[in-house]
Design a protein around this nucleic acid. Structure first.
Lengths: 260, 260
DNA sequence: TTCAAGTAGTGATGAAGATCACACAACTCT
DNA sequence: AGAGTTGTGTGATCTTCATCACTACTTGAA
């Protein structure tokens, strides 16, 4: 198992979209060689495989660290391998010819990226860009295919993980295809985002850590609409925002607005 | 292997949405006991499994025929098994509380329905309704899980199939999330729909076999907008419609309109 | 400390498309 | 043949947002 720190122009040599502008906090956390104590064990689908399968995976994976704004792979690129998120967040997005961007989801520790292209040999259909300094375990496509052929339980895990991806894609479709207004979509996003938030006096406290622009790309509307809807929610005392911290004051009301 | 003909109120006892109104052509084709000469062999992902795997699948599947408008399963229902489409078309859809419907895709012979819920034990996230008299091979969840655990090659096929579903979901997201106009979406739909159409004098001739309402639900707009866009396309001599036959006169121009 | 870039808030305006309201065509069923 | 049902075409509005245009705040780098 090897470890390395990537620069903002990373991996495949593609120019990172955000890092081009400004790598926010290049190396904000310690680089570690091993990743067994990260999300991989507790969160990941690979938590329920047999010990020898887990060991086999441990031997072929390679841990690396990326700064914020690094591109792991881009839409249209051939699949070279899979990335397992250990720490940090990665946004999965697609862009049209106008430059309009849509974010499918924000990957969290335990998520595996590039699974579908690796399995089926098709080009990447999405682009993956780190939002924060992120730690990833990489497995080359060759090794990965060999691995799942030799470990039946891993293959089933892969299928389940793909099923999860599918499920979350369906959720996105429902959200952007069946919604009636921007407020509805933003409310739904906030309810989901604050799902596992700690309860404090006055409501749920969540780190938002996304710009209005990014939220707009997640729910499919303009940046200004997000801004206006937030103002409206604040006016109605549903939420409060302090820097990157979101305080959900009335989750029930938000959930009502979000009813699909 | 058993065979049966279902009535419009079918399978799970749920009321079929369309059949409630009018089962269009109840039993429009002969019921056969075996399905080896249908899409399952040529089209399906299961075409590339080993002979013994294919034989094992043959032993646990159960072929049945459904009229148009039958509901195979509904959103929210628990997974009982998977359906492999042998003949006919099945629309996969979701509905919101207003009754607004969005169609994810039209399943064709070779497609497997309910794979994700069967694998992961989650409830169905979508509803499946036959568009035409349809022949399906059913495998109970229990049998199916046993089958893929015993046959490693089948498991990989399952993963690839889920990957395909995922991919098509991403395409839907791109289409409804990144499009700039209804005409763009309709053009894209028509280009895709006429992908494997025979070329005749004057263009590609395709069976559309969908109402404007259904097309609207596929591309995410109102019925009237589909009607108006079609009028516009006819005016520009891009397409012609005769009953359920669509003649694509200028695929190139449509493709230009459809550029994402 | 100052400058530049990125981010956020908010008004004004316009355009796309949903919705409503019909007329009419095509089909099925008596 | 006539009646009901479904599907289609098209005009007239009305709403919602996207877009433009600006101001102001924040933050990091020089």
């Amino acid at each position: 198992m090897a470890s390395s720190v990537m620069t903002a122009k990373t991996a495949n040599g593609y120019l990172p979209l955000a890092a081009q502008r400004k790598p926010r906090t290049p190396y904000g956390f310690p680089v570690v060689d091993d990743c067994t104590d990260c999300g991989l064990r507790t969160n990941s689908f690979f938590c329920s495989v047999s010990p020898q399968t887990a060991r086999a995976l441990g031997e072929i994976r390679r841990t690396s660290s990326y700064p914020a704004g690094a591109i792991l792979f881009m839409e249209g690129e051939a699949a070279r391998g899979v990335y397992i998120v250990c720490q940090g967040r990665v946004k999965l997005l697609t862009t049209n010819s106008d430059g309009k961007t849509l974010i499918f989801k924000i990957a969290k520790p335990g998520d595996i990226l590039g699974l579908n292209p690796a399995i089926s040999g098709t080009p990447h259909e999405i682009t993956a860009e780190t939002l924060q300094p992120t730690q990833l375990a990489y497995v080359s496509r060759e090794d990965f295919l060999k691995f799942i052929k030799e470990h039946g339980d891993a293959c089933l895990q892969v299928a389940q993980h793909l099923g999860r991806d599918c499920h979350s894609a369906y959720e996105v479709i429902r959200s952007i295809g069946l919604s009636n207004s921007v407020e509805e979509k933003l409310a739904r996003f906030l309810v989901e985002w604050s799902a596992d938030a700690p309860i404090t006096s006055g409501g749920l406290r969540v780190k938002l850590a996304l710009t209005h622009e990014e939220i707009a790309q997640l729910i499919g509307c303009s940046r200004e609409s997000v801004s206006r809807s937030f103002s409206e929610f604040k006016r109605k005392r549903l939420v409060e925002v302090n820097g990157s911290t979101l305080l959900v004051q009335d989750k029930a009301a938000l959930a009502t607005l979000a009813t699909l």
